[in-house]
Design a protein around this nucleic acid. Structure first.
Length: 422
DNA sequence: ATCCGGACAT
DNA sequence: ATGTCCGGAT
């Protein structure tokens, strides 16, 4: 990837911006004031910008990958994934040629797996339709899966330095405060903010300017306690002037979590264990996982103080019905909790053996919705497939269990109530 | 435990 | 307009 200094640190802006008169900042009406705002913001950015690997490049591919990873994901979480991903898939052609599962494997643990699938699909589309070059116009970019208006603007401005506006969580917060209508400071629409972002954008230095806007939101114009005294553009801020910056906050939708009880079963046959692939559209789409049963209803019916595990024969019957597989339930070996979107899932994990004498060759066809594929895998190959985070956790516990109890045989597998693993 | 964060479908 | 998808940081 091209290296170097994409945003040369020119001398700090020594000019003192003129004191601003009172009144709402309207970027459309005052070009001089807008230019001063831009200079202040950019000068601040040159002093305070954090260093990230995706800021060390202007390679549109690397910037695209980073922006997709950064969707709904914080910078600290993204960094190691970004490095690994770029090392393995250094360019569009390499990514397009890769197996989907390997792409997913490199995304494992980052979440929102549709992003990885879209990225891969888009890479193939770029090779097939655009000669392997990342498009540099907004319409074509947004025709690619996983690229919306923000990501298109980010690629256009960061990589190509085109004057394309961006609006994401950080810059949205900045502009919401900066441009708030004093009468209705919380009624600002995204449509208005997009228009404003476009009007505020300088025709040159769009890359630095856009990143400065985001960085200000990330470091100074914080949701909870905005550090307005440190803000280089507080003179231009409609809410700072009125002291109502704390009244304009991102209203977090208070969708309270739903408790879910699940059973995960590691079903063994000879040396292999049964894995299922999660279907399109749901959680962990395209990722492999251990067979899981939602037992929330049963637990609720049985009463809250009772053992959260249904009787072994009920579980065995349920697996026979959904997977067409005769099993004998073994011991409980792991309990953990996992929070995902608005669900708080408690997972109880059990060993199990296929109870039929005959070998069931190609995995059962899962008839239950939610699963698309099944496979019997040797423990060692669990490393090679993309697993959901809970799935990876179960796999790790399973490998430990098998290593510490090497002599375990089906005869010794006896169902027992879950121990409290807290 | 709560907070944080774009694309897409509906 | 609203809901869905994820995991790590705090």
């Amino acid at each position: 990837m091209p290296r170097g200094k994409p945003y040369p640190m020119c001398r700090a802006d020594k000019r003192t911006a003129s004191r601003t008169h009172a009144g709402a900042f309207d970027p459309a009406s005052d070009g001089r004031r807008r230019a001063a705002f831009q200079r202040r913001l950019i000068a601040w950015f040159r002093r305070h910008a954090r260093s990230f690997p995706w800021r060390e490049t202007r390679d549109p591919y690397a910037i695209w990958v980073s922006e997709v990873m950064l969707q709904q994901t914080q910078t600290a979480a993204v960094e190691p994934f970004f490095r690994r991903f770029l090392a393995r898939f250094p360019d569009v052609a390499t990514l397009a040629a890769a197996h989907p599962d390997e792409v997913l494997r490199h995304w494992e643990g980052l979440g929102y797996y549709r992003r990885a699938r879209s990225l891969h699909a888009a890479a193939r589309q770029i090779v097939a339709l655009h000669g392997g070059r990342i498009p540099d116009d907004p319409e074509t970019l947004q025709s690619l899966p996983g690229i919306g208006r923000y990501t298109a603007g980010a690629i256009l401005s960061f990589a190509f330095d085109r004057p394309a506006p961006i609006l994401e969580a950080n810059s949205r917060r900045v502009l919401r405060r900066l441009l708030a209508d004093p009468e209705r400071p919380n009624d600002t629409t995204d449509s208005f903010l997009w228009q404003s972002a476009e009007r505020l954008l300088p025709s040159r230095q769009a890359a630095v300017y856009n990143q400065a806007l985001m960085e200000l939101g990330g470091l100074v114009c914080l949701a909870r306690h905005p550090r307005c005294r440190d803000c280089p553009v507080h003179d231009y801020c409609n809410t700072y002037r009125l002291g109502i910056q704390n009244e304009v906050a991102g209203i977090s939708s208070t969708t309270r979590p739903t408790a879910v009880q699940e059973l995960a079963i590691a079903i063994r046959q000879r040396r292999a264990v049964l894995l299922l692939r999660r279907a399109e559209g749901g959680r962990w789409a395209g990722m492999w996982d251990f067979p899981r049963l939602d037992i929330t209803q049963e637990v609720a019916r049985a009463g809250r103080r009772s053992n959260p595990t249904p009787p072994a024969d009920r579980v065995e019957e349920s697996v026979r019905r959904s997977l067409g597989l005769p099993i004998r339930l073994g011991p409980h070996f792991l309990r953990f909790r996992h929070a995902v979107t608005r669900f708080r899932i408690t997972v109880d994990c059990f060993l199990a053996e296929v109870s039929s004498a005959e070998t069931i060759p190609a995995g059962p066809k899962p008839t239950e919705p939610g699963w698309s594929e099944a496979a019997w895998l040797e423990p060692s190959s669990l490393e090679d497939i993309p697993l959901s985070s809970p799935g990876r956790r179960i796999a790790a516990a399973l490998l430990t269990h098998w290593q510490t109890t090497p002599g375990e045989t089906p005869e010794r597998l006896v169902a027992s109530p879950p121990r409290r693993t807290r």
